[in-house]
Amino acid sequence: MNTSSETTSDYLLLFRGNVWDRGLSPAQIQKVVADWMAWFERLKAEGKCLGGHPLGEEGKVVSGKQGRTVADGPFAESKEAIGGYFYLHVADENEAIEIARQCPGLEYGAVVEVRPVADVCSIKQRAMEYSPGELAGANA
């Protein structure tokens, strides 16, 4: 079975754990942040990163029918919370992983999730596998 991830060249890096600064000296924090920005600028200059941003720690989680539940969150100060992202345009998954391994926060506990950007929503893909041809618009 062909999956789109085998041919895609776009990946999202999700940086998890935005508490890497705990226990670091001001000089160490400053170095990590400066290294991180220099890394980002270098990848952009090389055309391997098309964009990226840190995410604010305040946020909301919307759930339930008609989004009736709006909770404060997602409790961004944790090891799992997503602190930011890079959008990569690279040759293959190996290159995306190689880039992820250069993240300056790894040494201090940050975790990088490497995800292929899909052409087709996985729900549609599964829907087509369950009932090929039945879903109008599933190839859109």
Binding site: N18, W20, D21, P26, I29, V33, W36, M37, H53, P54, L55, G56, E57, E58, G59, K60, V61, V62, S63, G67, G73, P74, A76, I82, G83, G84
Partner: peptide
């Protein structure tokens, strides 16, 4: 569920310090 997060220009770690 949908997580709604503001996109920042600057790392919030710096704002903590």
């Amino acid at each position: 569920s949908v997580e709604v997060r503001p996109i920042l220009a600057e790392c919030p770690i710096l704002q903590r310090h």
